[in-house]
Amino acid sequence: MNPQIIIQSLLILAVAAVGWMMLRTPGGARNQAARRLVTLAFVLFAVAAIVTPSLMTRVANMVGVGRGTDLLLYALVVAFLAQVLSAFRRNAARERQITRLARRIALDQAPQPPGTTSISPGVDPGAAPRSPTHDT
């Protein structure tokens, strides 16, 4: 068996996993636990690379990579893709939240149809009306 197939398979699986996670809906506690475990594994990997650089070369040779620095580069590419995924999901969640807030503000500031008397939640009916241009 060609040793390069090992690293190629691992890299393809890692990229496919990141791509799959990009398509699925965000998780809760389980997703956060998995992210922490992956972060811990990456930290241990980095510490091992710093403490014993020759170990990186041996591991790289076992999986079909010529040098330990190349293996580290591949790991950093996968970590970068994971970071892009995380930022993408965080940004999408933030955009959904901003959309909900903008809709709520638009509904709260919409004029009441003639002949209706509704009181917005949290508004004191005896308080003086507020000017829409002077928010505090």
Score class of each variant (00 low, 15 high):
residue 67 R to F: 11
residue 70 D to R: 09
residue 28 G to R: 10
residue 28 G to S: 10
residue 17 A to I: 06
residue 38 V to S: 06
residue 35 R to E: 13
residue 14 A to W: 01
residue 52 T to L: 11
residue 58 R to M: 09
residue 37 L to M: 14
residue 51 V to A: 09
residue 20 W to R: 10
residue 73 L to C: 04
residue 21 M to A: 13
residue 49 A to I: 03
residue 28 G to K: 10
residue 30 R to G: 03
residue 30 R to S: 10
residue 35 R to K: 07
residue 44 L to T: 03
residue 54 S to N: 06
residue 65 V to C: 05
residue 70 D to F: 04
residue 42 F to M: 08
residue 40 L to T: 12
residue 19 G to E: 11
residue 45 F to I: 00
residue 55 L to E: 00
residue 43 V to F: 07
residue 35 R to Y: 13
residue 10 L to V: 03
residue 36 R to W: 06
residue 72 L to N: 06
residue 33 A to P: 00
residue 50 I to Y: 08
residue 66 G to E: 15
residue 52 T to D: 09
residue 69 T to E: 10
residue 50 I to F: 13
residue 35 R to N: 07
residue 51 V to T: 07
residue 38 V to Y: 10
residue 71 L to P: 04
residue 73 L to P: 00
residue 55 L to R: 08
residue 54 S to R: 13
residue 72 L to G: 14
residue 62 M to E: 10
residue 73 L to H: 04
residue 48 A to Q: 07
residue 21 M to Q: 10
residue 33 A to F: 09
residue 44 L to A: 08
residue 21 M to Y: 07
residue 63 V to I: 15
residue 26 P to A: 09
residue 57 T to I: 02
residue 40 L to C: 03
residue 21 M to D: 08
residue 32 Q to V: 12
residue 47 V to C: 02
residue 39 T to C: 02
residue 19 G to I: 02
residue 48 A to N: 06
residue 27 G to T: 03
residue 69 T to L: 13
residue 54 S to A: 15
residue 59 V to L: 15
residue 25 T to N: 10
residue 41 A to H: 08
residue 62 M to R: 13
residue 59 V to T: 09
residue 61 N to L: 12
residue 56 M to N: 04
residue 15 V to I: 13
residue 61 N to F: 08
residue 11 L to W: 05
residue 55 L to Q: 03
residue 60 A to N: 04
residue 11 L to M: 15
residue 25 T to M: 09
residue 49 A to G: 14
residue 61 N to S: 14
residue 36 R to I: 00
residue 31 N to M: 14
residue 61 N to K: 10
residue 72 L to W: 05
residue 67 R to L: 07
residue 18 V to G: 01
residue 41 A to W: 05
